Simulated assay, not measured.
Amino acid sequence: MTNDDTGTPNGGATIPDAEPLAAAADLGRALRELIEVSVTTTVPAAEVRAAAELVRQVTERLAVARRPASQLPALDDLTTGRRVFNPVTGAGSALAPPLVVRREGDGVVGEATLGVAYEGPPSFVHGGMSALLMDQLLGSAAAAAGLWGMTAHLELDYRGPLPLETKLVFHARVAENTGRKSVITGTIALAEAPDRSLVEARGVFVMPRTEKLEAYFGAITDASGRHSPPRRPSDATALEQD
């Protein structure tokens, strides 16, 4: 696995060219900044419209060469968990907070701070973001334990709202494994009060049977167009080194 989405080697990972990876991460960071500013700006409407036109020009510039959804990004390596555009942890994703995950004890721990772009109730994180983040973290806990699969069931109990612009801490561990099926539990808390869970999650992850894997991923290719169905079809991304 790699230590994160930067492609630092560990265990023989395939390392993409440094410049395209750095450029993708830079664009992702700039887009996240743009999204956050776009929902907090109070400039006049004319200025907002001018900004929208600039964004459309940039979109046209990037759209001249695109990959289809069935083709893996050249920067990704599923065998190591490097997913540069993962919408939760990807350094190149405009949607990602991004969540940073590392091993800890018999599970994993993650950290993230969510801005106003992720708002649900005024000044608090949208409840759907908790589900997105916990699904990712539970999958990472499975990967850290050498297990994998796809989410079959996810349930959350909301004990209290998560404040925006506040460092959050996430924990997850495998509670049960019976071959193709794993039960994984996790929590979200404030970093300053990690023992008081504000969100509790329980997920069931199931390894699809061979015929399902072919149906789901048989059309996937690598960046060169070569047939390349993932051997570990999981959203879980690489963990940072301790």
Results as ranks from 00 to 15, higher is better:
Ala45Met: 09
Ala45Gln: 13
Ala46Phe: 08
Ala46Tyr: 09
Glu47Phe: 07
Val48His: 09
Val48Lys: 12
Arg49Trp: 09
Ala50Leu: 13
Ala50Val: 08
Glu53Ser: 15
Glu53Leu: 14
Leu54Gln: 15
Val58Gln: 13
Val58Ser: 12
Val58Cys: 11
Val58Ala: 15
Thr59Asp: 13
Thr59Gln: 12
Glu60Met: 09
Glu60Val: 06
Leu62Pro: 03
Ala63Ser: 15
Ala63Leu: 05
Val64Tyr: 02
Arg66Phe: 04
Arg67Cys: 01
Pro68Glu: 11
Ala69Cys: 01
Ser70Ala: 14
Gln71Val: 12
Gln71Pro: 04
Pro73Tyr: 01
Asp76Gln: 02
Asp77His: 03
Leu78Phe: 08
Leu78Gln: 06
Gly81Pro: 06
Gly81Ser: 07
Arg82Asn: 04
Val84Asp: 02
Phe85Asn: 00
Asn86Ser: 11
Asn86Leu: 00
Gly90Phe: 02
Ala91Leu: 14
Gly92Ile: 02
Gly92Asp: 00
Ala94Lys: 05
Ala94Pro: 08
Ala94Leu: 10
Leu95Cys: 05
Leu95Ser: 10
Leu95Gln: 11
Leu95Arg: 11
Ala96Ser: 13
Pro97Val: 06
Pro97Thr: 09
Pro98Tyr: 00
Leu99Trp: 03
Val100Glu: 14
Val100Arg: 15
Glu104Met: 09
Glu104Val: 08
Gly105Ala: 15
Gly105Leu: 10
Gly107Glu: 10
Gly107Thr: 12
Gly107Asn: 11
Val108Trp: 08
Val108Ala: 11
Gly110Tyr: 08
Glu111Lys: 07
Glu111Ala: 14
Thr113Lys: 09
Leu114Arg: 03
